[in-house]
Design a protein around this nucleic acid. Structure first.
Length: 112
DNA sequence: GTTGATTAGCGTCACGTCCT
DNA sequence: AGGACGTGACGCTAATCAAC
């Protein structure tokens, strides 16, 4: 599936300064099946330069595709982790509220 | 069965940050 | 400075679901 040209909003900066915990630098590794082509030193004609540019772009797109997949996977994992933490805290909170009510009952003066 | 809304996943672009 | 990388934003598609 190939997309038509993307609309660019110019409103995409997301830099907030604080890095999410799921952002971890991975060691550099070439995606499977990627082979390095001729070194730039061996290029001559404009056509070869164009081919090299195309190759570089495709390599970049391929790497970015994989990076995006990995990024989404980590983000899902991170969200899952947050959700389970929420669940734990909710249970804890409920228990504390119940305990508070019990203590209130014990400590409140008896009316008669 | 059709249709519109919602959701999940994907590819790409733009940009910030890190590293050499 | 420039390349590599991670990620937010965006548009697109396919799957699912509810209402008709």
């Amino acid at each position: 599936m190939q997309k038509p040209n993307m609309a660019v909003t110019g409103d995409e900066t997301a830099a907030t300064g604080d890095m999410p915990t799921y952002q971890i630098r991975a060691p550099t590794a070439l995606p499977q099946g990627v082979v390095m082509a001729a070194s730039p030193g061996s290029l001559h004609s404009p056509q070869q330069l164009a081919e090299e540019a195309t190759r570089k772009r495709e390599l970049r797109l391929m790497k970015n595709r994989e990076a995006a997949k990995e990024c989404r996977r980590r983000k899902k994992e991170y969200v899952k982790c947050l959700e389970s933490r929420v669940a734990v805290l909710e249970v804890q909170n409920k228990k504390l509220i119940e305990e508070l009510e019990t203590l209130k009952d014990i400590c409140s003066p008896k009316t008669d």
